[in-house]
Nucleic acid binder design. Structure first.
Length: 783
RNA sequence: GCCGGGGUGGCGGAAUGGUUUACGCAGACGACUUAAAAUCGUUACCUCGUAAGAGGUUGUGGGUUCGAGUCCCACCCCCGGCACCA
């Protein structure tokens, strides 16, 4: 018998597949399409560890299965190579980011190819390729044209370690997601994208995505943070009761208006600098102090409320016409709602704490229904919300989602295609001049000044104004890490096109992505940004669907054997190259898919890996069990069960149970023998999981073309069932024994036999009731 | 605090309301071998019992049902998202 030499086999078939272009995708409109996508990696310097390929193996199985079902498959791969990880690596290792990225990509690609993934490498993309980022810049110009990209000067999150501004999405709480440093607030000029214009669609269209996992949709809902409420206007009066100003508050509880006993304004609110009160100096000191507090201080002070009363003025509760005091306090956030609230201590925990500290009155106005609320007494909260809003204000919806801070003061990113002209102000780079290429620089370290290192390259910065030809400078900020990944799936459809982002016929054929697999950590980052850009691209006619990804499956992390994250820092990294070398790519693939449910996090265990290898060796040895004459009916039945289950399980990403069913088949085939046809069908089922060994056996069985373009085996419904069934005999719901009957045996026959078999437990009594479940069980019930 | 997902042998895990622990890892015993590895076979939830067997068991406590890991109620614990967001 031939030995199972995984190294020889895997090398041989990988070469063969590449030579024959087996996995090339074409726009073959005669066939149904299947676009299977992985979140593309950023090529870090550490190379892959065994956790990375888990998702790629899954999409590989799904795409191979689709191909065998006669679908036209697009399963591409590329590199998300701009951004902080690549740049920080480059700085640390003192190599140019471009050089580092090229090297890392080569390494990643080599590692991926060893695993035998069916990527169409002719469609490989790289976000740092000018031919690619030309279109990232083009999208920015379109956003600018539509008023969705704007310059702003608001204080934003600044990472003192990465020395750049960040978007809210780049934070974990109040630390930089990349480096873990606590961020500061820093006012600076920046480019911002108006994602908030799309908040409602991003939220509502989650309903168009029944095939997304609920927790991802839930994260996005939380992140968008929609609140429905009202804006109510309170007059501000001085001590002579003369109106000096009005202030708007936002509330989700307009029904509690009669219980509003004071008003709180955020310390940053401009009205504090506009109106006069007797203790202006004290208030401004408080405001200044609040502004310098970091988020950490504001939230870790035990939520002890602080604030200062605005002396000499009052607000008028529009419902009660009572004069109520006004405070500045930092528990009210300037950037949410209107930056001011009506405080209802009886019905809000925070207001209650503040009221207790400052000894303020509290009026209960809602129990089951409204009370102490004048004409609204007796209404339910829901009724009162509508009526009070109507009478005293306007309905208003707010979102927690903030506009996307889109500029980075770093070198390694797409240049923002904008020119600042002394005369014409902001002038977009004309489309024909794209791409604006990232220039070569000697020093690419961040400057920390709020300018990117590009600002120092005068020959690049100084450029004539496209409009007037006069003196102008280029925008020197670059785009964030997430820009290139916000639309890359479209480029795979048409990677070489230099006249359009994507040919519309190709887009109509491939879109949307059928299955998208990647890490759950992208729920509120990449996946929100990509949905935003996609909707924008739909609005300008580039794409034809409302959502980019029909189905989203998040891959569960593979942790190190010690239960921690696999990281060079902990010295617990397992390199897939070593596993491929020693056990083979097919073993690695089977093991990773067999470990447990695909979406769950799970610890790597090298000692369990051997089970996957043993399984493949037993598959290999089945050749010895081949029978030329009569074949086992048992084997045939389990084969058909296996065909059914493996097909269904692949659809449902239940690879672990698909593999265990294949193991059950092998156990049976070893015991009872199998025919050549049965072996052939089984190898076809195995092919998506272990493509090399399957291909090798397939050819050994005399097939001349690849197993990977063979037809997926069909099962016969009639062959799934046994002729005999085991019927469980229960007495009072407790299993006592079991009996063998022909399938579909009559109830009366079973009842009779069961009572005899269970005589011992019936104690001579006759059952009061008999429950019969055909082909499954009989339950003899004694009262 | 709000929301989402979980809790089953020594371990990873399976299980349309119908014999809990499939499949695999680790273990024990046996076969083959001069020996070991590999391979094959047997065994294996817990308690009591020499055994035949009996009883118990899916985080805890209730409920529905002939029958509950699965459905309902309450609680405990773990993982994830949001969070002074009005």
């Amino acid at each position: 018998m031939r030995a199972y030499d995984h190294q020889k086999i895997e090398k041989k078939w990988q070469k063969e597949w590449e030579k024959s272009g087996l996995y090339r995708s074409t726009e073959d409109t005669s066939k149904p399409k299947s676009f299977v996508l992985d979140m593309f990696p950023y090529p870090s310097g550490e190379g892959l560890h065994v956790g990375h390929p888990k998702g790629y193996i899954a999409t590989d199985i799904v795409s191979r299965h689709a191909r065998m079902q006669g679908k036209n498959v697009l399963h591409p791969m590329g590199w998300d190579a701009f951004g902080l990880p690549a740049e920080n690596y480059a700085i640390k290792n003192k190599v140019h980011p471009r050089v580092a990225v090229e090297k890392n990509i080569a390494r990643f690609k080599e590692q991926l190819q060893k695993i035998g993934l069916d990527y169409d490498w002719s469609r490989e993309i790289n976000t740092t390729d000018p031919e690619y980022y030309k279109w990232t810049q083009w999208i920015f110009l379109k956003l600018y044209e539509k008023g969705l990209a704007y310059e702003s000067f608001e204080p934003i999150n600044w990472c003192p370690s990465c020395q750049t501004g960040l978007a809210n999405e780049d934070l974990d709480g109040n630390v930089c997601e990349r480096c873990g440093t606590v961020v500061e607030k820093r006012p600076m000029r920046q480019w911002t994208l108006k994602i908030t214009d799309y908040a409602e669609r991003l939220l509502k269209d989650l309903d168009l995505l029944p095939e997304w996992q609920e927790h991802i949709k839930e994260s996005q809902r939380n992140w968008i943070g929609k609140s429905e409420g009202a804006i109510l206007k309170f007059e501000i009066v001085d001590s002579r009761k003369e109106t000096i100003e009005g202030i708007e508050v936002f509330t989700t509880r307009p029904d509690t208006l009669f219980g509003a006993t004071y008003v709180v304004i955020a310390p940053e609110h401009p009205i504090l600098r506009k109106i006069k009160f007797t203790n202006t100096a004290e208030v401004l000191v408080y405001a200044k102090k609040a502004a310098t507090k970091t988020e950490i201080e504001r939230t870790t002070e035990g939520k002890e409320k602080t604030g200062v009363k605005l002396e000499g003025i009052f607000a008028i509760n529009p419902a009660t016409n009572e004069e109520i005091p006004v405070f500045a306090a930092d528990y009210v956030l300037a950037h949410y709602g209107t930056g001011a609230i009506m405080a209802v201590p009886a019905h809000d925990e925070r207001d209650k704490q503040f009221a207790q500290k400052f000894n303020l009155p509290s009026t209960e106005v809602v129990t089951d229904i409204l009370k102490n609320s004048g004409e609204f007494d007796g209404l339910t909260s829901e009724e009162a919300k509508a009526k009070i809003t109507e009478k005293f204000g306007v309905a208003k919806i707010t979102y927690k989602l903030r506009d996307w801070v889109f500029s980075r003061q770093r070198y390694w990113g797409e240049p923002i295609p904008i020119i600042h002209c002394e005369k014409d102000g902001i002038v977009p780079v004309p489309e024909k001049d794209l791409p604006v290429k990232l220039p070569e620089v000697e020093h690419y370290e961040p400057t920390g000044t709020g300018e990117s290192p590009l600002a120092a390259i005068e020959s690049w910065v100084n450029t004539p104004c496209p409009k007037c030809g006069g003196v102008a400078k280029r925008e020197t900020n670059t785009m964030p890490q997430w820009a290139g990944s916000s639309w890359y799936y479209l480029r795979y459809m048409d990677p070489q096109n230099d006249t359009a982002l994507v040919d519309s016929a190709k887009e109509k054929y491939w879109a949307p992505v059928d299955v998208y697999v990647g890490g759950a950590e992208h729920a509120t980052r990449h996946l929100i940004y990509a949905r935003f850009w996609h909707k924008f691209l739909q609005d300008i006619g580039v794409v034809s669907t409302p959502e980019p990804f029909t189905r989203l499956v998040s891959v569960g992390l593979i942790q190190a054997e010690d239960g921690r994250k696999m990281s060079k820092r902990f010295g617990n990294v397992i390199n897939p190259d070593d596993i491929v070398e020693t056990y083979g790519a097919d073993t690695l693939r089977i093991y990773e898919m067999f470990m447990g449910p695909f979406t769950e996090a799970i610890a790597w265990k090298t000692s369990s890996l051997i089970g996957a290898r043993r399984f493949l060796e037993r598959v290999w040895r089945l050749e010895q069990q081949l029978q030329t004459t009569n074949y086992s009916l048992q084997t045939e039945r389990i084969l058909h069960q296996t065909i059914k289950k493996v097909g269904e399980d692949i659809q449902n990403f239940k690879f672990n149970t698909a593999i265990s069913q294949m193991m059950i088949f092998v156990n049976e085939a070893e015991k009872s023998g199998l025919s050549k046809e049965q072996y052939r069908d089984f190898v076809a089922l195995l092919a998506p999981f272990a493509p090399h060994i399957a291909e090798d056996i397939w050819h050994e069985l005399g097939n001349k073309t690849s197993v990977h373009i063979a037809s997926w085996p069909r099962f016969n419904e009639k062959k799934l069932l046994t002729d005999e069934v085991t019927i469980v005999v229960q007495v009072n719901g407790k299993a006592r024994t079991s009996l063998l009957f022909p399938r579909d045996v009559a109830q009366a026959d079973v009842e009779k036999a069961a009572q005899e078999a269970a005589a011992k437990w019936l104690l001579g009594k006759v059952p009061d009731k008999i429950i019969f479940v055909p082909n499954r069980l009989v339950n003899l019930v004694l009262a």
